[in-house]
Design a binder for these strands. Sequence first.
DNA 1: ACCTAATACCTCGGGCAACAAGGTAAATGT
DNA 2: ACATTTACCTTGTTGCCCGAGGTATTAGGT
Lengths: 131, 131
Amino acid sequence: MSKRPVNVGEWPEPVPAGPAARLRRELARGTTELAVLSVLASQRRYGYELMKRLGQAGGGVLEIKEGTLYPLLHRLEDAGLITAAWEAEGRSRPRKYYSITPEGRAHLAVLRAEWAALVEAMGHLLDEEPT
Amino acid sequence: MSKRPVNVGEWPEPVPAGPAARLRRELARGTTELAVLSVLASQRRYGYELMKRLGQAGGGVLEIKEGTLYPLLHRLEDAGLITAAWEAEGRSRPRKYYSITPEGRAHLAVLRAEWAALVEAMGHLLDEEPT
DNA sequence: ACCTAATACCTCGGGCAACAAGGTAAATGT
DNA sequence: ACATTTACCTTGTTGCCCGAGGTATTAGGT
């Protein structure tokens, strides 16, 4: 497509690429680390795979861009929360697989708890004033 | 003195001001706008009141600092989502009350929906991998 | 065989929310 | 009386995320 599909008429349903995108980005901010670690907790993945996977989950709310993902992975690696390993798999272009470390799991647990607390607090707040 | 009380020995109990604070801040990012609008939806409040109120809710997860709140209120006002009015109330130092506008309510509805979607998506993701 | 798209990795610059730190002044508490 | 809390504000810094760009391999279409 080169120019972007864009959905000339309207959005069929997912894809709120308007001003709502700013909102979404701000809201979802900080959750990417949790999302990434959470996915890596069940099994190792390579970067691109991770990106696609999160992009599909939940109607795109968790979408993460390359310019966000790769720096994030490097930060996590530097922090010792994940480890990286190039894997050839019989292809000339190897993939870089990331695995979570024990420290990463501990960190994930904290993040999950923090997230749960936030969701609960916001839930109470929002329930106070119905729709 | 004058330097800040600071709790010379240690924290009495709430206040995870360690490295966990960074986490919390990043996670909660973007939720402040939602939180503020949500509170104002039920009734008008002045800035300081808003700050204290959010600070107590949910064990401090929604805590918001002055340096964050006031600029936020001004942004929301500029955007026409809230309106401000100085009210004397018989005191020489008047308070600045903020009220939500119809546009603000519409915006709040979008934010709420976006938040709900995020929470649901993260919920699914986290459930895939138990603790 | 050619060419386009998708895959797969990366980096640099800018935008922006949140904070830290600082300031002013009135109200309240001790 | 003095200190603390209330109540408003601004400026500078930090750090996540993204846009835009770059490279190279692999798959698909004609």
